[in-house]
Structures are given as C-alpha cells and as structure tokens.
Design a binder for these strands. Sequence first.
DNA 1: GCATTGACGAAGG
DNA 2: CCCTTCGCCAATG
Length: 121
Amino acid sequence: MPKSTTPNNPVPERDFFADVMDVVRQVPRGRVTSYGAIAKYLGAARSSRMVGWCMNRAHGVKPKVPAHRVVNRNGLLTGKHHFATPAQMEDLLKKEGVTVKKDQVQDFQKKFWDPAQGLRL
DNA sequence: GCATTGACGAAGG
DNA sequence: CCCTTCGCCAATG
C-alpha cells in the first residue's frame, strides 16, 4: 500500500493538485467559483488555502486551467497578482461575460458555480 | 528542524 | 462592524 506522507492522511490516491485542476477546468465559461467551494468539494473544506497554493503551481499546466474563474468567497479577484498581468484575470472574466468592478465580481452569487452543483446550468 | 508564508474561510472578541 | 485567532497542509528560508 502506498505510504501516506502524513499519518492523518487516508492515502490520497488522487493528488490534491490534480484534483483541484480537474474541478477548475469544469467551471463553465462565464461562471466563477471559490477556493472554499473547491476545497469542500474535495472533502477538505478547511483546506481552502491548499487550493490556492495548488493554483499557484497551476501556472503552465495543461490543459489550460481557467484560474481566472477562481475567486475567493468574497467574489474578490485575490489571485489576480499571480497572473501574467494583474489585469489579465478581470479582463478574461469580462470577456466571458462576467462583470468585474475593481477586482470585485458583480452579481457574484449569480455567477457563482459550485462543483457540488455541477448539474446546475 | 523550526519559523514564516500562502491565490482562504470561518469563528470569536 | 473591524480586528484577531485558529484551522489546514505544504513549501520555503
């Protein structure tokens, strides 16, 4: 059996990183999700930080990961500084039909997409 | 090996 | 309502 890196870890067969990437890729165009929602969906509701940490490594990952569709629970584009340019995130969102005002997603609740709701269009 | 940080979030004061 | 603390896990110094 694969040894877990941490005794508290019930042998994560899927890498948290890959898992996060997978979920983010499923975010529909014109929608946004939050780190906490992803973390919760993965069963690590209290590890929202890990999600953000993974996103940091998502840079250059294939296929392209729409990290710009991931914001914090506030609907704020907290990670915009990690993109090629700070304006790229909001710019991409706007092109997808998401209105962004000063790093804040408008109608966030309306644009919000939860992986757990996956079936919701 | 310990201390600090990190694209977060919820709870407490 | 604003600020502080805790939690969670991994990376980095």
